[in-house]
């Protein structure tokens, strides 16, 4: 069952030097209980996609085209007031840095209770009991005693657990997790990924997991979308994309990750860098760096074509 549908989403930033197209015809969907990983290099537009869905685009950025539908209802057009009950209740969000997400002046209990009462009709007592239950569920030891503690009294990993509790306590149907483990150490990162996976499975929450770390994606996602220069380059089941990527960019990306299993003399590298938004080449955005480029790539922009188990925006797969 499709929960979130993004269809031809285009986001533009008007600047003095002209219009910047930061997202260009991005389309994907997430089913209930499914984890979609969104991966890409910095500036590829992955965080922006998340922001557009929750309605947190920073002006002057604006949705210039396409639709976002949650459960069949459009959520790309409403005003701030109309969005309030959707944000939080229907869509939860986790951001990279747990310290800036939490209010340092309020105890975590107060922040949880406030969030719960904003979205659910509960008495103070019930809301508090629910807050304790969420803290226990995200693995905060001695939750009942620690509910009055302030964010600075927790370690980084524990803070991120509190943030997860905050994002999930109104039981949203969709969770947007933007680099949720990037600020954490590897041993803590593994705990947080396991926790996110368990909670979202138990509650049937759909997750859009935005990260630059292919390892995290391989670990947590069901499907993955690879973004490049504001467009989706490849989308498909995670196993296929990681092990038999079809798009030359995904192939290069996977090859450039050093392996833990064996050591190689030289890493395969993609020469050059992702184009700036001011200078996206005509045709396929990856064409100047692509080892398999041919004439058509430089003039015409490819759609997503079926490529084995995945779909890739590459003329090689034009049937």
């Amino acid at each position: 069952m499709t929960l979130l549908e993004v269809d031809g989403l285009t986001v533009e930033f008007p600047t003095r030097r002209g219009l910047l197209r930061a997202l260009d015809q991005v389309s994907f969907s997430i089913g209930a209980g499914e984890v979609l990983g969104v991966v890409g290099e910095s500036g590829a537009g992955k965080s922006l996609t998340g922001a557009a869905i929750i309605g947190l685009l920073e002006p002057p950025g604006r949705i210039a085209g396409g639709q976002i539908r949650l459960d069949g209802r459009r959520i790309d057009t409403p005003t701030r007031e109309q969005l309030r009950p959707i944000r939080g209740r229907q869509i939860g969000a986790i951001f990279q840095d747990p310290l800036t997400t939490l209010n340092p002046l309020y105890s975590i209990g107060r922040q949880l209770v406030e969030t719960i009462q904003t979205h659910l009709q509960l008495s103070d007592r019930d809301a508090r009991a629910r807050a304790v239950r969420w803290l226990e569920e995200v693995g905060i030891p001695a939750a009942r005693q620690r509910i009055g503690a302030y964010p600075h009294e927790f370690s980084g990993g524990m803070r991120q657990r509190v943030v997860i509790a905050l994002a999930l306590c109104a039981e949203p149907r969709l969770l947007i997790a933007d680099e949720p483990t990037t600020a954490l150490d590897v041993s803590v990162q593994a705990q947080i990924i396991a926790l996110l996976k368990r909670l979202t499975r138990d509650h049937g929450t759909a997750v859009m997991l935005v990260t630059h770390d292919m390892g995290v994606i391989a670990e947590a996602a069901d499907r993955v979308a690879v973004m490049y220069a504001g467009r989706i380059a490849e989308i498909g089941p995670v196993r296929a994309v990681v092990q038999q990527p079809a798009h030359p960019y995904t192939q290069g990306l996977m090859d450039s990750i050093p392996s833990l299993q064996h050591r190689v003399g030289r890493l395969r590298q993609i020469d050059g860098a992702m184009p700036r938004l001011t200078a996206i080449p005509a045709g396929c955005a990856f064409s100047p760096r692509c080892p398999k480029v041919f004439h058509r790539c430089r003039v015409e922009r490819p759609d997503l074509f079926d490529a084995g188990d995945t779909r890739a925006a590459c003329w090689l797969y034009d049937a």
Binding site: G157, A190, G215, A218, E219
Partner: peptide, 21 residues
Amino acid sequence: LLEAIPDLAMTGKPRTPVGGE
């Protein structure tokens, strides 16, 4: 540390995230 790294080879080896920080 080696255990905690997400597995790109997707061998599906069972992993036990170690607790604590």
